[in-house]
């Protein structure tokens, strides 16, 4: 599928290339567009013209805006197929992760808000008690979805989402896969301190390579 013409902006290029490379730890300048990544990408059929190689090309051409918000960044399932097959060992899933952090820091609306809500809710719930409570996690996630749909008057979506989750919940209860007990880490202080540090630490780069390779 042909995509829009990519425009080369030399003045913008270096900054975005440097930032993505430092934060993801991936040497994207090694990409020679062989497209083995594109051939193996399981969500490639759904990301329009954006395949891992094209995402890399977008960054190399300095198109920050497109790189931060496209279907691949939000549809990537982190299966690591692209990176495993890349002859130059570029792990594009680390790049989509990095672009997610960057788009969040720039307060951009996530292209797939449900994906962002899912991962955020997971981390909040997991760090609340130290162990993930599936009911708390899904409750948080659905609250975020409901709120987002509510302020946009999307009542039908609220109904559909609630019904789908209620159906799954009932099915899981029936099959004894739902557990209502609460598990909690006894010594939460370590985790709380690490969480605080994580929020404070800002961009993490892969630049300190204590290993040689």
């Amino acid at each position: 599928m042909a995509g829009p013409v990519l425009e080369f902006k030399p003045e913008d290029t270096q900054a975005v290339v440097d930032e993505v490379m430092a934060r993801s730890g991936q040497n994207i300048t090694a990409c020679y567009q062989c497209r083995r990544c594109a051939a193996g990408c399981p969500v490639g059929e759904e990301t329009g013209y954006v395949t891992p190689d094209r995402l890399i090309r977008m960054i190399l051409l300095g198109d920050r805006e497109q790189a931060l918000s496209n279907e691949l960044v939000w549809k990537c399932v982190s299966c690591y197929t692209c990176g495993t097959r890349c002859p130059n060992e570029i792990q594009t899933a680390k790049i989509t992760e990095t672009l997610k952090y960057m788009s969040k820091e720039e307060h951009l609306d996530p292209l797939l808000p449900k994906v962002a809500a899912f991962h955020k809710s997971f981390c909040t719930a997991a760090n609340h008690l130290g162990r993930l409570n599936e009911i708390e996690f899904m409750g948080l996630y659905e609250m975020k979805n409901t709120f987002r749909n509510l302020i946009r008057f999307k009542f039908k979506e609220i109904y559909n989402e609630t019904m789908a989750q209620a159906k799954l919940g009932m099915m899981m209860t029936k099959k004894k896969r739902m557990h209502f007990g609460i598990e909690k880490v006894k010594h939460l202080s370590d985790l709380k301190r690490l969480l605080k540090k994580a929020k404070r630490s800002g961009p993490l780069t892969e630049s300190d390579k204590s290993r040689s390779t």
């Binding site: 992760e97 997991a126 880490v185 929020k199 993490l204």
Partner: peptide, 22 residues
């Protein structure tokens, strides 16, 4: 004893530091 959640894929998609710390 007293293990905690590993963060799964969600931590790495939310905060890189947390993805190692957990």
């Amino acid at each position: 004893e007293d293990w905690n959640c590993c963060g799964a894929t969600s931590a790495s998609k939310t905060n890189d530091f947390l993805a190692v710390a957990m």
